[in-house]
Simulated assay, not measured.
Amino acid sequence: MPLPSGIRSRFVDDINGLRMHVLEAGFETKGRPCVLLLHGFPELAFSWRKVMPQLAAAGHHVIAPDQRGYGRTTGWDGDYDGDLNSFRLTNLVRDALGLVSAFGYRSVDAVVGHDFGSSVAAWCALVRPDVFRSVVLMSAPFGGPPPLPFNTADAPPKPKHEDPVHRELAALPRPRKHYQWYYSTREANADMQRAPQGVHDFLRGYYHHKSADWKDNKPYPLKSWSAGELAKLPTYYVMDLARNMAETVAEQMPSPEAITANQWLPDRELAFYSAEYERTGFQGGLQWYRCGTSGEFIGELQTWSGRSIDVPSCFISGKQDWGTYQRPGVYEAMQQSACTRMLGAHLIDGAGHWVQQEQPGEVSRLLLRFLKQATERAQ
C-alpha cells in the first residue's frame, strides 16, 4: 500500500460484526482530538491518504476505515442475494459509533464523509450529535430525513407512489437510465469486475470521467427531478440505456500521455485500488445503492422526520463536480434547512468528484479552518 509517511494500516476486531481495516495518523501521542474520515464509492480509506498527514500535523488523531462492503474490512455479506439489511444507513452509523468507541472516544471533533460516505456522516451527526460534534459533507449534499405523510387522517388513501422518471428516461429520443438504479441490478458487479478493459483501466476511465481532467464537467443546478433535466447530466450519472458502466467510461478513457502526466492519481496509486477491487469485487459498495433505490428502509429513516443537523457543519466539493447538483434542490435545502449551523459551502476550482485527491492541499486547509471554527463555537 503506497502510503505517505506517518500513516499506518491496522485492523480492529469486533466492530458491529466486522473486522475493520483502518488507516490511522497522529497515533504517536495520546489525548489528541479525533477526526473520523468516511470514504465513498468506488474508493477506500486509501482515498484520504493525502489529507491525513496534514490533519495529524495539526494535532489530530485521524481514523479512516474501509467501510462495510469495502477493501480489507471483513465480516460483511457480498452476495447479491445476501443480507441487504446490514448495509442500511442506520447500521453504517452503528459501524462508525463502534469504531469510535473501540478507540476509546466518547466523542469526535468531526466526522467527514465523501460521496456516499457523506450520507453516512450526515446521519451520524443527525442521530448522535453528542458523539459526532461537527460534520463535513463532501461532494454529496444532504437534504434532510424523508418526511412522514402529514395531515392524512381524513383524506382518502393514496396509492403507493411510483417515480415515473425511469420510464420517462427510457422513452427519451436518446434512451437513458439512472446510474443508481443500474448499480442496483444483478449485472452491475460483473460488468465492472469483469470489464473487458480490466479493472485497472475501468477505474482509470471512471476516475477520469468524473474528475476536473474531463473538460466537459461544467456543472450547474438542474431545475427539477425530471427526465428532460436529468438527461443533461453526464453519462456516468445518467447512462445510455443500452450501455453498462464499463462501456460508458471506456468511451472517455484518457490518452497514455494524460495518464503519465496525472499527478493526483498516478498509476502506482491507482494500482492499489484496482488490486483491491479485483479481489473483492464491487458488490459490497453496490449494496448501499440497493438500500436506497429499493425504498425498503425509508420507514426507519422517517423516525427522524423533521429533524435537522444542528452541530456545526460544512460542505466541500469540486467546482467541476456534478455531484453537487445531481439531485435538484438538495444543495439549496442543505444550506437553508437541513443543516442549521452551516459554516460554509466551498466549491474548489480544479477539482471534480474526487476532491480530496485532486486538491488535497485546499481540502486540508478548509478542513482545518472548519475544525478551528467549530471548536471555537463550542466553547
Results as ranks from 00 to 15, higher is better:
S5P: 10
G6T: 07
I7A: 02
I15N: 09
L23F: 07
A25I: 09
G26Q: 11
E28C: 04
V35E: 10
Q54C: 02
Q54F: 06
L55M: 13
H60D: 11
Q67V: 07
R72M: 08
T73V: 06
G78D: 15
D79N: 12
Y80N: 11
D81A: 06
T90Y: 06
N91S: 06
L92S: 14
L92F: 06
A96N: 07
L99N: 10
A102L: 02
Y105M: 14
S107A: 13
H114G: 03
G117T: 02
V120N: 10
V136T: 13
L137V: 15
M138L: 09
T152S: 09
A153C: 06
P164K: 08
P164L: 02
V165R: 10
H166N: 10
L169W: 09
L169Q: 12
L169E: 13
P173G: 01
P175L: 04
H178V: 14
Y182I: 08
S184L: 08
S184R: 10
N189C: 09
N189E: 11
Q193P: 05
R194I: 05
Q197Y: 02
D201F: 12
R204D: 00
K218A: 04
P221D: 01
S224A: 15
W225F: 12
P234S: 09
P234N: 04
E247Q: 15
M253P: 08
P254S: 00
E257I: 03
Q263M: 05
D267G: 00
E276H: 07
E278N: 09
F282G: 12
Q283H: 14
C291G: 10
T293G: 03
E296A: 10
E300A: 03
W304K: 07
S305A: 15
S305E: 05
V311D: 06
P312S: 09
S313Q: 12
S313C: 09
W322V: 00
Y325G: 00
P328Y: 03
A338T: 08
M342A: 06
L343C: 07
G350M: 01
A351V: 02
G352L: 01
E358N: 01
L368F: 09
L368P: 00
F370Y: 04
K372R: 15
Q373W: 07
Q373L: 15
E376F: 07
